[in-house]
Design a protein around this nucleic acid. Structure first.
Length: 396
RNA sequence: GCUGGGAUAGCGAAGUGGUCAAACGCAUCUGACUGUAAAUCAGACGACUUAUGUCUUCGGGGGUUCGACUCCCUCUCCCAGCACCA
């Protein structure tokens, strides 16, 4: 399948400055994608774009992956309704390293270059920046952006000059990469369109050059109509210390029926035929959850590797039949009789005694698949303690 | 700098001297029903104890009062308008 068709079929098309998208099929170009180091890990939101980047690479385009060391020090105001606290240099450095590592994992085996915009901003003088970059931005245009309007209008939370300037920094990134690496395309999420377009204008004004943007739509959970990738525990991270491999796998396994086709197309590299056949099976027998199972396994494989994906799959199979597995968190607890409340808190299944009591009162506590009805339980090593439907802890 | 408006639990938002641990909505949690889905229904949703009691909360600090989220002073931050703008 040609790249333009692939992108369209998988649902990666949103807005682009390209008049004719088939140039992506006929020409080999260099493009870039950037991630803001506001955390030391990407989320499944970033992963969607990463998957798209993967398709660009596999169709022969050269990838430049940017970590926003400079932009991270400022903070992207886009989509935020409130000014953010500045991160320290150390924190940004740590986050950059985390993002770069994830680039290496996701794009393992593929050709790509990683750059850091801090490298070209750290010695860029303020006056120089205003003359070279600031001069080319129209205040009227900057002020008209929706999120600026919502921040400075009545009821807005205000915005500092620093965050306001974010767009200029990102715009210059594009110009710099255009000049030094021949980058002519930026790919981004739909929410970054405004920031990205400023680079296109800048390149045209300063260099008289032509550069383009390809934006992917925000992945939306069709069942709820909300941005995909958030759960009760917050965002789903790619870093296993923030979202365990098991939770990550579970997240995908619990994908809603309506959205699972979209997610398969976006988040896996399965071919059209494979996906069609999976969906056929799934439609015949929704309860078999064939589509979700494939999705969970494939995505976990891409992010955490095949071995981890297998473990998560096995853990799931055994856990729901009542056995602990390698991936079940283990809690040290002396054998013998205990207060249920106390055990729940110590096991981290409840944050306070009140919460533990509530869970117990509402019948949400199970020990080895049996509902715990008495306030005292007898524990022994190897017991499987469960709260709700899918939170497990193994006693040792 | 001046004038006015505002800051309430994860978010939004009521509450203008006691009946406020604080309405309501969203989010979240548990249960029922299911397919570890969605929808629906029921309950919970500061902490400690368990019985219906104690303690800590309504931007920070101080005060008035028997008693304050509610009144006064002050500080911090936000918004709007005005003024200033070499």
């Amino acid at each position: 399948m040609k790249l333009s068709q692939e992108l369209a079929w998988r649902g990666f098309t949103n807005q682009t400055t390209l008049k004719d998208i088939t140039v992506l099929d006929s020409e080999k170009i260099t493009f870039y994608w950037g991630v803001d180091p506001s955390s030391n890990s990407m989320t499944v939101g970033n992963l969607a774009i990463a998957m798209m980047v993967l398709h660009f690479i596999s169709h022969g385009h050269k990838a430049v992956l940017l970590v926003g060391g400079a932009t991270g020090l400022i903070g992207d105001p886009d989509g935020k309704d409130e000014e953010r606290d500045l991160k320290t240099v150390e924190e940004v450095a740590k986050n950059k390293a985390g993002i770069a590592l994830q680039y290496q994992q996701i794009f393992a085996g593929q050709p790509f270059t990683i750059v850091d915009n801090y490298d070209w901003f750290k010695d860029f003088g303020y006056l120089q920046f205003l003359r070279d970059v600031g001069k080319h931005f129209s205040m009227t245009q900057l002020l008209q952006r929706d999120f600026i309007q919502s921040r400075i209008g009545q009821g807005g939370k205000g915005i500092s000059y620093a965050e306001f300037s974010y767009s200029l920094i990102q715009g210059y990134d594009f110009l710099h990469l255009f000049r030094t690496k021949g980058v002519t395309l930026q790919v981004c999420g739909a929410d970054q369109w405004g920031n990205s377009i400023s680079g296109v204008d800048l390149i045209r004004k300063v260099e008289g050059g032509e550069a383009h943007i390809w934006s992917a739509p925000l992945v939306v959970n069709k069942a709820t109509g909300k941005k995909f990738g958030k759960t009760e525990n917050g965002a789903i991270w790619l870093d296993s210390s923030k979202t365990s491999v098991f939770d990550f796998y579970q997240f995908w396994l619990n994908a809603d029926d309506q959205g699972v086709l979209d997610y398969l197309k976006i988040y896996t590299l399965l071919t059209k035929d494979q996906i069609d056949s999976l969906m056929g099976e799934f439609t015949q027998n929704p309860a078999g959850r064939a589509a979700q199972k494939a999705l969970a396994y494939e995505v976990t494989k891409i992010v955490h590797g095949e071995a981890e994906a297998k473990k998560a799959k096995e853990a799931t199979a055994t856990l729901f039949s009542g056995e602990a597995s390698d991936l079940t968190p283990i809690v040290q607890m002396p054998e013998g009789e205990h207060e249920v409340i106390e055990v729940l808190v110590k096991a981290g299944l409840a944050t306070s005694n009140s919460e533990a009591r509530r869970l117990f009162d509402q019948g949400g506590v199970k020990l080895n698949q049996q509902k715990v009805g008495s306030p005292r339980v007898t524990l022994k090593s190897g017991d499987l303690l469960q709260v709700g439907k899918r939170r497990f802890v193994k006693i040792s």
